[in-house]
Amino acid sequence: MHGWCERKPPEWSTYLSKLVKVTAHSNQQYEGWVFTVDPVSASMVLVTLPEGDRAHVRVVLGHAVESVEVLQEENKGNTLRLASLFLAHGAEALSP
């Protein structure tokens, strides 16, 4: 996407917890729930949740992102699962 790296944090935040399809360099496509977008490198952290407690995490480097398409809005269950995956202290630690 033109200017993905130049966006402001509030714009990246609009993608949080949504299911997206990211097209990266050489037409590689990745789907997953957005856990975060690093404000330093614009890198996207995408999570897929196969059955059970397992999760697969893919980080697409900001400089390689060409386009981002929202496939599905956030849902509460997945948002909580995403947060709990990365937080030692549980989901509440991420809330301001």
Binding site: K8, P9, W12, S13, L16, F35, V40, V45, F86, L94
Partner: peptide, 15 residues
Amino acid sequence: EQRSRSELRERFLRT
């Protein structure tokens, strides 16, 4: 912007 940047950055560092 600061709040947004903090949340995004902390999540990335935790990743």
